[in-house]
Design a protein around this nucleic acid. Sequence first.
RNA 1: GGGUCGUUAGCUCAGUUGGUUUAGAGCGCUGCUUUGACAGAGCAGAGGUCACUGGUUCGAAUCCAGUACGACCCACCA
Length: 897
Amino acid sequence: MLLAKHYDPNTTEARWYAHWLEKDYFTSVPDEREAFTIVIPPPNVTGVLHMGHLLNNTVQDILIRHARKSGKNACWVPGTDHASIATEAKVVKRLRERGIKKSDLTREEFLAEAFEWKEEFGGIILIQLQRLGASCDWSRTRFTMEPSLSEAVTKVFVDLFNKGKLYRGLRMTNWDPEAQTVLSNEEVIHTDERRPLYYVRYKVEGSDEYLTIATVRPETIMGDSAVAVHPEDDRYRHLVGKRVHVPLTDRTAPIIADDYVDREFGTGALKITPAHDVNDNEVGKRHDLEVIDILNADGTIAAAAGIFVGVDRERARKLAARQLEADGALVKVEDYGTSVGRSERTGAVVEPRLTLQWFVKMDDFAAKAMAGVERDGNPGGETEFHPPHFFNMFRQWVGPDRVRDWCISRQLWWGHRIPAWFAKGTDGEDAQPFVAPTVGEALVLAKAALGGHLTLADLQQDEDVLDTWFSSWLWPISVFDGFDPANKAELDYYYPTDVVVTAWDIIYLWIARMMMAGEEYTGEMPFKHVYWTGMVRDAQKRKMSKSLGNSPDALALIDAYGADGVRYGMLSAASAGGDIIFDAPIDPKTKQALDESQLCNQGKMFCNKMWNALKLIDMWETNNAPAGAVEGLAIDWIKQKMSLTLKQVEADYASFRLNDALGSLYSFIWGDFCSWFLEMIKPEYQQPISDEVKAAAIEIYSDLVNVLHPFMPFVTEEIWHQLAERDVDLCVAPLPVASSFDESLIARVEAVKDIVSRVREQRSSKGLSPRELLPIATTNPAHAVVTDAGLAEMLQKMANVSEVAFAKTEPAGAVSFVVGTDKFFLTLPETVDLGAERERIEKELAHQRGFVISIEKKLTNERFVSNAPEAVIAVERKKLSDGQARVAALEESLAMC
RNA sequence: GGGUCGUUAGCUCAGUUGGUUUAGAGCGCUGCUUUGACAGAGCAGAGGUCACUGGUUCGAAUCCAGUACGACCCACCA
């Protein structure tokens, strides 16, 4: 068989993925095995794969493949989120491109359009995940708006309403004038922006005095219902109780005193606009002020303002400033830094607005989520965080003083419609909702409340839909149809899930709320572990985002480096929880990855390295001679060291240190296996190798690609099959297990490796060819390389030295070096100039003397000797004697120079 | 204003309860090698007073306090 010169992911990845699917390896049904479950953080149905998904799903796939190969029933449930506002915004945009406004369509027409969009683009991201190698159980793919998940949402809404955990009320809310819906606080992104600060004077009624206030929002003056000053502010005390003329209007408003006002800020006087500011609203309630709503839903000025009616608020601000100036009311304008809230999805500036919405009472829920992760105020509950410090951030969100009620209604069409009906003709805050799964059941409630004469035609459903997260928080239960008692066995088998993998930015939006719903409906936390990934950032540490255009095209990256290369690159950059800087430059024109993506490239080269190791083993002809001493030792050594590595890797899995596990495997395969083991057993050019040695090499290499498989599934599956005829695919082959190992054998071979390195160093520094056979000797007649013929032969082969001899004193023309405490001589050809040798030894000697002195200091310190544990002192004594031996050896060499 | 995380080699980062030969890896860099698995390679090398200042301790990159700088979260912002 002739293998290609280089490994080519393009010819293997698609083939293996198709094969795995065909064999149905990823499908899970409950059986007698232990389950290992992950539910995917559902990407937006219209989304495309980005860097965050790449990282997140690589981690999930590693965990799930590891579980599958460890004999567990691995179940990774994929799916998508309907992403109410994000998707609706996209559909609206697409309609607009065709010249259609949302308001031109009926609700039904719009939804038809949206479903069409979903059908067209909804599956893309899942196909992209397959390119990455994600071993999801595709037969379980769910969508948050499919019928059974929608039923779960309805069921929960009705249940919470009946339990008194929902309420409907008129509250100050965040209004997105572009999408024309309310948003939760978490959907508003605050950024610092420069804004003009206008100083405006209000004339005091019946006086020549003016009261000057400062505002960044002069367009809301028409909604002012008071001017407030601090009660103890002597400048204004005499004005409290009087009235001012509100500029731009013909109204007057009272001057009130309230200690909310900061005397130090601006002029110490503050305009109060209860309809358009959260704090002003509070002040207004305290003083029973009129609420004058001067903003329309689309952000234009409402008729109640009496001026600038129909003008957008941003433009009205400028018009108001101009008018105030013309009226002589504008005192001055300052440049001012203030924080502006924008809609996460539409980017529109969010307006505080009083609207009628549905809310979930959160205090009980928050306590439940908190209880899931803490014990006596410390981390440690049913759910464990990795890394644990996210506990503090979690508490900041969910802690008792922090949490606020959750606004769950949205004035959108794409989403789960609220299962509440009202009697026609009733409206506003006082209208009585009849909450039930169907209109028929709502009618029964309505009849009982309002009289038997009612018919279906007398009811109208709430127009709003629910916040996307109101379905997401049920995800770990609803993907198993767990709200239907008929599926209890399935739920019991897979739930609680083992781990959820997510970035920390949705800690409250999603993770905390899943914990709340989990506890409420199953009595258990929905997952045992949370693996927090960091955010993926670019070289300038900016969050990767579509709007910045700094995110490489994920598929182009996979095309360029192979899925294995990208998986390697993502993971080796990602220690759990830390943000990762992923510097994968892309060509701005073609959006193709440039070849300088160091980490992915390293992954790609790793694949190639493994491919070449395969080629080497594959090309060896065999004979039936028994293994020689060197090969026997090499095989024992690599097997034992592999056991050590396997143990380490399993420990890394257990503590979710996946990048450490990958790092260990990388250096074991590249270093120990390729650079050392294969060289140790490699036959002379075009000579055959013992068949038992080749078989051992194949066995060992098979174990290695086996352990590596969860990280780099494609290249390992390919090599697995190229190495030998198999009756099982690597994807489902059991992982090798660590056996006991002999540390002393490992140590003896490591000592030989050290000597080899020192010989190579000598050759390198003296400009000698590796081919030149050199005599070597040691002053230690008991050294293993003298007494053990196998080790001696290994040293000869690896360092290209002649027979290892015992020498009492330094031979002429030799250089010396110390390994451990043993001195070695390497006799060089006469042509080599030893002039620099003295300098080298002096440098080394100075270093060793310094070392010895530092240990001596320690050991002569009475308090150290009396306080430190025996074991530590013993180690120090050993360090001292070893150091002294090295100093003596070096001094002797120096004398010879 | 409250909080979290970080500061270790040119870059990106490990360093797990304080003690393992006076700090490690990958990449980059430098030198040498090179028809024999792999130049997408091999071998070797240079490069760090572990941000700063105090403290605890026989012993601190590691624990404590403070300072500086950086990233981020929450709240407020007339």
